[in-house]
Design a binder for these strands. Structure first.
Length: 646
RNA sequence: GCCAAUGUAGCUCAGGGGUAGAGCACUUCCUUGGUAAGGAAGAGGUCAUGGGUUCAAUUCCCAUCAUUGGCUCCA
């Protein structure tokens, strides 16, 4: 008998060679139905693999990343099996599970191509293979045997992969007539997959190497329930509707011009209003938290970036330096704000009592992004960071992290991002040599970050080896209304710049000490954040952020003057809006302004003029009845207040 | 930067070797209206740019630029 310990700490005894599936059955038949993979002593494995020794196990369902991974990985094999059946002679590269579904890189037989027209046939075949409920069988093979298997098939991609593996660690998985090289784990059988569908095609280099052959990448997704696939496809459709590039155009928020240059957004009046509202709101929050606002130029002397190290690392891949005509001095468009902020810090001397010094700027930076990488507002060459740097003593790192986490959480909550995750990136414990800064400082900072996150109620994922060379960090990933994740906030410790710029403060011991610098951004870039906000809200911004909160709709032009009077009055209550005085019928005006996602429409006609009222219509809800303009102003200002109080 | 697709009116898109098309938007006129599209007329294009083939190119070919989807990169 062996002892199996479950995640809740309970221990059960089983015969030697018990499998994960049998353990699940022992716990509950329902669990046995849902479980997809197992972790045995933190190592991911198949449910059908026997366990011979005492072990800690975790059973994974589709809801867990690990379960999804196994599910989609097996699905990738189904995709390959279907393609092999339909397109004999296809060579296979790799076919991993990804965040949303899976893909397989393939090379079709000479002269054959794959197009969207082939999707229905592949889908049909895949479903058929799933319904056959073929068992997925693991087989361990020797290297020689593995290579000869794929040599016989003429699949040079697989043989290349195998040739890099160590003998004795190679496993094949077989389902139906299809065998693939794979580490696993996999589902016990293909019948778990109830819905499966090809999504798109793309080109991808073999092993991501642009000097090598380009393969066809087939993206697909699968689910344990048909309904889940339908929901996913609906979500994709909705995402298309919410595309910030489309809504940005419709709502006249921003524009791109080839003449100005690609990847450089032009902010239209309404987009600028939105950005200004976000910026001034955040500025107020920063001031409450004792940040000091600064402003720095858009360019900086090349020596600044030589000192910071950015020139050496990124100089070649940046916009090239510009020179003064007379002296030939070189300046760079600033790719980061931090060197400028460091120079502000250096403008005077500091005592340990002066720290922390929190410095913030909405700083516009310029980076040469490769042209294929540009995408709407999310990848641009000119963007404004909501940047801040905290200069502090080592003993203050934890407290500063807590304060920044508080701010990040406040901002997310205020903007209705209710779901988010945190990730802490630490040093690679196996190789500490590639990091700058003392061992002692790193240990202290890494501990401080983890404690700070813990005490703020975050449950961060810890990633070893993901830290930058200059310091550990804490990143925030938010989930939007469609369940997509976006990386927004980041908090990073930096030992590098204080070192390079020789920053100092005088300690209580009357000795000079080096401060620690913390970089942090909450929105990240205003451009990107506005894009995320647009897609999160589908352009229906919260009332306080709407560039136009109201539009007055006169029934006919006879009521234009009254509308103007009402608008002037509402402006006194800080309400933003305009009058739709087009020569159109009221139905038309309502339709057009609803489509512009105006939160409130105020209809005025004869009735309203006589009673000195407005007829209020709320976006998405329709007619709210009539009230005086003053009452309406109070109503919406109350709505905004309540928004922040919740 | 690499691969592929795309580029036609302000926007969304149809078309196609021989005088350039629609809907919406725009302008003017009619209409002065009551909670999601009132009517008519008009204006608007070097068919991305540069070459080539052709009697003739917006259409076919090549190159360039841009956009989109991927790949690679990302302080």
């Amino acid at each position: 008998m062996i002892k199996i310990t479950l995640p809740d700490g309970s221990v059960r005894e089983f015969e030697k060679s018990v499998t994960g599936l049998q353990i699940a059955e022992d716990i509950s038949p329902r669990l046995a139905k849902e479980v997809l993979a197992i972790s045995i002593n933190d190592e991911l494995s198949d449910l059908t693999r026997p366990i011979y020794e005492d072990a800690n196990i975790i059973l994974h369902k589709f809801e867990d990343d690990e379960g999804k991974h196994a599910f989609w990985h097996t699905s990738a094999h189904i995709l390959a099996e279907a393609i092999e059946a339909l397109f004999p002679g296809t060579k296979f590269g790799i076919g991993p599970a990804i965040e949303n579904g899976f893909y397989y890189d393939i090379e079709l037989a000479e002269g054959k191509t794959l197009s969207e027209n082939d999707f229905p046939a592949i889908n049909k075949k895949m479903l058929e293979l799933c319904q056959q409920n073929n068992p997925v069988v693991r087989k361990e093979v020797s290297k020689a045997e593995a290579i000869s298997t794929f040599e016989k098939k003429g699949d040079n991609y697989k043989t290349e992969l195998i040739s890099e593996l160590e003998d004795g660690t190679i496993s094949f998985y077989q389902q139906g007539n299809f065998t693939d090289l794979c580490r696993g784990p996999h589902l016990p059988s293909t019948g778990y997959i109830k819905a499966i569908q090809v999504l798109s095609l793309a080109g991808a280099y073999w092993r991501g190497d642009e000097t090598r052959k380009q393969l066809t990448r087939v993206y697909a997704i699968s689910f344990p329930k048909q309904k889940m696939l339908q929901e996913y496809l609906l979500m994709l459709e909705e995402a298309k509707k919410r595309d910030h590039r489309k809504i940005g155009k419709e709502l006249e928020l921003f524009h791109f011009s080839q003449k100005v240059g690609m990847g450089m957004a032009l902010w239209l009046p309404k987009g600028t209003m939105l950005r200004d509202l976000l910026e001034s709101w955040l500025t107020e929050e920063l001031k409450k938290r004792n940040y000091e606002m600064v402003k720095t130029p858009h360019i900086g002397h090349i020596d600044l970036y030589k000192t910071s190290g950015h020139y050496e690392k990124y100089g070649k891949d940046s916009f090239q330096a510009i020179q003064t005509p007379a002296e030939g001095e070189a300046f760079m468009l600033k790719p980061m704000n931090c060197p400028h902020h460091v120079e502000i810090f250096k403008a005077r001397q500091y005592s340990y009592r002066d720290l922390p010094y929190r410095m913030a700027e909405f700083g516009t930076v310029y980076r040469y992004e490769q042209h294929g990488e540009l995408h709407g507002l999310t990848r641009v060459r000119s963007f404004t960071q909501d940047d801040a740097h905290v200069f502090c003593r080592p003993d203050q790192v934890k407290d500063e992290f807590k304060k920044i986490i508080e701010l990040v959480m406040y901002v997310f909550k205020s903007l209705n991002f209710t779901e988010y995750k945190a990730q802490i990136s630490l040093r690679d414990p196996k190789d500490k040599t590639k990091y700058i800064g003392s061992d002692e400082n790193w240990d202290k900072a890494e501990q401080a970050i983890q404690e700070a996150a813990e005490e703020m109620g975050l449950k961060p994922k810890i990633e070893l080896g993901e830290a930058a060379f200059y310091g550990p960090k804490l990143d925030f990933m938010v989930k939007d209304a469609l369940g997509r994740t976006w990386q927004l906030g980041t908090i990073q410790v930096d030992y590098n710049l204080p070192e390079r710029f020789e920053l100092e403060y005088k300690g209580s011991d009357n000795e000079m000490h080096r401060p620690i610098m913390i970089h942090r951004a909450i929105f990240g870039s205003m451009e990107r954040f506005v894009a995320v906000l647009i897609e999160h809200t589908a352009g229906k911004f919260p009332l306080w952020l709407s560039p136009q909160q109201i539009v007055l709709l006169p029934i006919s032009e006879k009521f234009n003057n009254y509308s103007k009077k009402v608008l002037e009055l509402l402006k006194k209550y800080d309400i933003r809006g305009e009058i739709d005085d087009r020569n159109e019928k009221i139905g038309r005006k309502i339709r057009d302004n609803e489509l512009k996602r105006i939160p409130y429409l105020l209809i005025v006609g004869e009735k309203e003029v006589e009673s000195n009222t407005v007829s209020v219509r709320k976006q998405g809800q329709g007619d709210l009845g009539i009230m005086s303009p003053e009452n309406f102003a109070e109503l919406i200002n109350k709505e905004i207040q309540e928004y922040f109080n919740n």
